[in-house]
């Protein structure tokens, strides 16, 4: 989704303010990037440059951290982030089938977002809800005991939100 220029300016202002507390302190890069991702939803190149400049950390170092950790995203995410847990318990209880169905129903490949920007589909590392396997994470919410049959209703409900 394209962000309107006025909105974008506001977001950068917000980020600059948030970065203030990290300036000149050691070991803050990951926390600073986490906050930047919260503001923008993801970390495009421009945002990484902004963080590098504000904290006077080389861009190469910023990028090395962003590309290392799986929770940082350099591509946009959907309004609703659907993540299928790929922990062992979920895997042996059919997570792969669930992911395939989800891909079929939304039309978004894992790691991608739908054309309307509504849904992004991805896999996630174990969320620790193994006794409810298989699990789909929707934003911060966990949906346990998920079956391919529930997906239509689930997506419909999300569209209404």
């Amino acid at each position: 989704m394209a962000v309107r220029p006025a909105k974008e300016k506001e977001l950068y202002g917000q980020l600059t303010l948030a970065l203030e507390k990290y300036k000149g302190k050691p070991g803050v890069l990951i926390a600073a990037l986490q906050e930047a991702q919260q503001v923008f939803g993801y970390l495009p190149r421009k945002v990484m440059i902004h963080v590098a400049n504000e904290l006077t950390i080389p861009l190469a170092e910023v990028y090395s951290v962003v590309s290392f950790y799986s929770l940082f995203s350099t591509v946009p995410v959907g309004v609703h982030r659907l993540e299928v847990c790929m922990g062992t318990a979920c895997y042996v209880r059919g997570a792969e089938q669930l992911l395939k169905e989800l891909q079929k129903k939304t039309g978004a490949e894992p790691g991608k977002v739908t054309a309307d920007g509504l849904f992004s589909v991805a896999t996630t590392r174990c969320v620790g809800a193994c006794s409810a396997a298989p699990v789909i994470k929707i934003g911060e919410e966990l949906h346990g005991g998920a079956t391919p049959g529930q997906l239509d209703a689930l997506l419909e409900e999300l569209k209404k939100r």
């Binding site: 070991g27 990951i30 950790y69 799986s70 929770l71 940082f72």
Partner: peptide, 20 residues
């Protein structure tokens, strides 16, 4: 920020240092 290797002690320390 999502990296299995950070459960390893020396990697965990690198991560608290704010690096890879």
């Amino acid at each position: 920020a999502g990296a299995f290797v950070c459960g390893e002690e020396t990697a965990l320390i690198s991560s608290i240092h704010g690096t890879r």
